[in-house]
Design a protein around this nucleic acid. Sequence first.
DNA 1: GCTCCAAACGAACGCTTGTTAGGTTCACCT
DNA 2: AGGTGAACCTAACAAGCGTTCGTTTGGAGC
Lengths: 211, 211
Amino acid sequence: MDRRTEIMTVAGRLFSESGYHVTSMRDLAKAVNLQGGSLYAHIASKEEILFEIVSHAADLFLAGAAAVPPDLPPAERVARLVEAHLAVIAREIGNATVFFHEWRFLSPERKAQIQERRDAYEAYFARAIADGVEAGVFRVEDPRLATLFVLSALNWTYQWYDPAGPIPPDEFARQYAAMVLGALGADLPLTPGPSPTRGQGRSTEHAGGAA
Amino acid sequence: MDRRTEIMTVAGRLFSESGYHVTSMRDLAKAVNLQGGSLYAHIASKEEILFEIVSHAADLFLAGAAAVPPDLPPAERVARLVEAHLAVIAREIGNATVFFHEWRFLSPERKAQIQERRDAYEAYFARAIADGVEAGVFRVEDPRLATLFVLSALNWTYQWYDPAGPIPPDEFARQYAAMVLGALGADLPLTPGPSPTRGQGRSTEHAGGAA
DNA sequence: GCTCCAAACGAACGCTTGTTAGGTTCACCT
DNA sequence: AGGTGAACCTAACAAGCGTTCGTTTGGAGC
């Protein structure tokens, strides 16, 4: 890992722990065993660091969502989106925290750049939910509100989820996805295996069940 | 409104708009037509302002939850808790934003004081959900995770909900509560009136499944 | 008319901030 | 052997920070 990358990594941790404005360049320098001024041999400005962290996190979220096949049935697609989201948080909780908490301190231009990607990310969820509503597998009154509900449930997790805690990331994601589908009024527990589980639930799930 | 209250109100707005550390005492003073130093005739320190805002918001949330009769059936209790929470956000979005976003910058003692109240607040939800699980009206795998799910969905709303926007607060709360109950695996849409709604929905599901 | 006191001013305090500039070290290339 | 250039240090800069303090203001109570 070269110096610049190390700076970014450590900055991600410090910014997430103490906040962007509380962390001074000298704090950061000390954490990578440098003098304050020496940082500027590697980076142009403090805000550049913030942008790179936030931008990196945005890329991860976007890539995770883009990897979900768009031709999957809506319920499974939503489940996969949820799992992808939580996987990013589990893997890079520091950068994710900075992404959610400090992005508003970016300059207007850079903020706009991130906003675009947030919108694109939200669109993945909006589309999957809209498809599900249209197909009759989701029962929600207002798809837009449902989308915001789901994203809210996901976006707050960085505040409390501890990847090293008692709940392993994929178990966490599985249960979370089930609750998200419940919120959307979907029926099936959507367990992958042939386990009969405690399901009565409607059998045909999707069929032509137009609402 | 006396000067001190005005300062707190304006500070709540400024802190929520720009963040606690970005807002300087001189910014705040200018917003209430004072010189920087004059603020200290009314308050002891900048952090005292922050604490008062956060503490006030915590009181509102706690009072809202405490007003929900604990002997209501769990599903209705959860719905009422959701509505109370969103009512606070709709009414005091600025202070709520500061509460969620800036409370970590309090001194350790004051932070601990707020943490206590957050825990007490969370307990209202945990209890209602646990009761519902025990009564068989909620179907969740892990009540603790379900509680965090619900609180996540609620806690993020300050980021996007606009009380003056297209969705009026009580309509917002009603739909949100329905989705929360869905996430908890409750059956009934819980509409107060006798409207049959568009339900196919599972009929028997859980035997004693009265909500 | 005088006193009193809270409210506000305005200047200053010591300190930290992000950033820059100049100088030194040292591994590497020819 | 000499040169190059990146990495780093040290010192400094102007600006802004939260806060203090002596002074001024202006209205209420006597």
